[in-house]
Computed example of a mutant assay.
Amino acid sequence: MSAELTWFKSSYSSSGGGECLEVAYTSRTTHIRDSKLGARSPRFAVPLDAWAAFVAYAAREA
């Protein structure tokens, strides 16, 4: 990946700390990592539409 990603805490993360996801977006991809590990964290990347479908499903099932 050539461009540096701008990470932010996901709005779906717990406000109590410890269980936080960080998310970064590119034009076509959502990148997800564990905030506890920061730059050392493994990254999970999915197309934007797949991430939106997952979040919609999770919201319905919550």
Rank of each mutant, 00 (worst) to 15 (best):
residue 1 M to G: 15
residue 2 S to W: 05
residue 3 A to T: 14
residue 4 E to S: 15
residue 4 E to D: 15
residue 4 E to M: 14
residue 5 L to T: 05
residue 6 T to F: 02
residue 6 T to S: 15
residue 7 W to L: 03
residue 7 W to T: 03
residue 8 F to R: 15
residue 10 S to L: 07
residue 10 S to P: 07
residue 11 S to V: 11
residue 12 Y to W: 15
residue 12 Y to N: 09
residue 13 S to Y: 10
residue 13 S to P: 00
residue 15 S to T: 07
residue 15 S to D: 13
residue 17 G to S: 09
residue 18 G to R: 06
residue 18 G to L: 04
residue 19 E to P: 00
residue 20 C to L: 04
residue 21 L to Q: 04
residue 22 E to A: 03
residue 24 A to P: 02
residue 24 A to I: 03
residue 24 A to T: 00
residue 25 Y to K: 12
residue 28 R to Y: 11
residue 28 R to F: 10
residue 28 R to K: 14
residue 29 T to Y: 07
residue 30 T to K: 10
residue 30 T to H: 08
residue 33 R to H: 08
residue 33 R to Q: 10
residue 36 K to I: 04
residue 38 G to E: 09
residue 39 A to G: 03
residue 40 R to F: 08
residue 40 R to M: 11
residue 41 S to L: 00
residue 42 P to W: 02
residue 43 R to V: 15
residue 43 R to D: 01
residue 44 F to Q: 03
residue 44 F to M: 11
residue 45 A to I: 00
residue 45 A to R: 06
residue 46 V to G: 02
residue 48 L to F: 02
residue 48 L to S: 07
residue 49 D to R: 13
residue 49 D to E: 12
residue 50 A to V: 08
residue 50 A to E: 04
residue 51 W to T: 04
residue 51 W to E: 06
residue 52 A to L: 10
residue 52 A to T: 12
residue 53 A to S: 10
residue 53 A to H: 10
residue 54 F to E: 00
residue 54 F to R: 03
residue 56 A to F: 05
residue 56 A to V: 01
residue 57 Y to N: 13
residue 57 Y to A: 15
residue 57 Y to I: 01
residue 57 Y to T: 08
residue 58 A to Q: 13
residue 59 A to D: 12
residue 59 A to H: 12
residue 60 R to G: 15
residue 61 E to A: 13
residue 61 E to T: 14
residue 61 E to Y: 06
residue 62 A to Q: 11
